[in-house]
Nucleic acid binder design. Sequence first.
DNA 1: AATATTTTTTAGACAAACCTAAAAATATGT
DNA 2: ACATATTTTTAGGTTTGTCTAAAAAATATT
Lengths: 219, 219
Amino acid sequence: MFSQSEENYIKTIFHLGGISAKGISTNAIAKKLNTKASSVTDMIKKLSEKEVVLYKKYQGVSLTELGKKTAVNIIRKHRLWEVFLVNKLNFSWDEVHEVAEQLEHINSAKLINELDAFLDYPKRDPHGDPIPDKDGNLQFVEKSLLATLNIKEKGICIGVEDSSSEFLQFLDKHEIALGKNIEIIEKEPFDGSFTIKMDNKLLNISNKIANNLYIQKTQ
Amino acid sequence: MFSQSEENYIKTIFHLGGISAKGISTNAIAKKLNTKASSVTDMIKKLSEKEVVLYKKYQGVSLTELGKKTAVNIIRKHRLWEVFLVNKLNFSWDEVHEVAEQLEHINSAKLINELDAFLDYPKRDPHGDPIPDKDGNLQFVEKSLLATLNIKEKGICIGVEDSSSEFLQFLDKHEIALGKNIEIIEKEPFDGSFTIKMDNKLLNISNKIANNLYIQKTQ
DNA sequence: AATATTTTTTAGACAAACCTAAAAATATGT
DNA sequence: ACATATTTTTAGGTTTGTCTAAAAAATATT
């Protein structure tokens, strides 16, 4: 149906569109995909003809329903493969991305639905991101960046914004893992760092870390 | 390292080379890959420059050591994925080929070695073909086409020549499966068909079937 | 509002992998 | 051995996805 390259554009537009529903800019896509704006324009024209994307010159793009459906399916595959790699093949959560980027383009409905069953219909991938079901329903969970919480607020680590292995290995080193309960003890106005309580121990966290860790508030 | 297209050529040359060590003809490759001879010539030149293949104009090609190593690795991946699909994801042996053709191009040493371990280091794929180990060693097992056996010879079904779903489903229907013991009861000179004994029942098999089923002789 | 800057698009090129049609080399038949 | 047939290669073209450089549009600055 779609080439690997087309799929990567569709996925990227979806991810960039998450925040604003407005047209996604050519430059933003180019930056994410490590390519040139002119290449993006070319591809956008093709995707527009294939009715995956709405496009008006100089106005940016947005996904059509077909485009969204396609994107969600790719994301479903990516995340299910990540679960497989971590749960069955001893990958750690900072090793899965590159391989999942390849596996997400494998085309077989039976494969992905059987994989889903084999993994026991997981709801989230190793980074805490929700896995769409086979009808494309993506469950939404209220989450906040740790950096936005106030003193005395409590919550559960539920996801990461950045999936780089540097960041994930940092979390491993400090035993910050998904599912852990935390409480904000102190905010340092000077450098934006946080003191949090986790496993009954105090831990200091830089502002950059706090801006890459998602918390589900527990009232 | 190699593009998907290059990998398909390398694999095809390996498979065609199994019989004769001589140069594989351009036309043979073109036929197997469903492409044109001129395309094959183009690709062969490229593979020759990459030292995967020995090539003299009009003399056909053969794989270098690098080429063989590459081919065996692709075959290892293909066959391990087939085992995964059948043993873990409820695929039947006639459904795996197409998906394995895609999965064999995924590039990750860790992935394939962990998959190997996860599957318990299988020695053969669902069609009875041997799986190379991670150093590229392909175990050789003496096998004969059923059609070459004589009356009273006994053996074990150990593989298939043809992997089309028509043939595999035919075998399923008649409960002919890998590992089953058979004995040649009669050969019909007129049409080349065979009467065999399997599960203590007599079964008649056409010459075409007999030419697509491999037997490991017992004594 | 006019100018400067940034963003986006167009125009033209390139590499990969394929194609058709024609030419060259090899193989075959008598 | 020579004509014919087959195989293989060459020459030139197409599509996909990329690029650079320049032009056009939109946005920002003063």
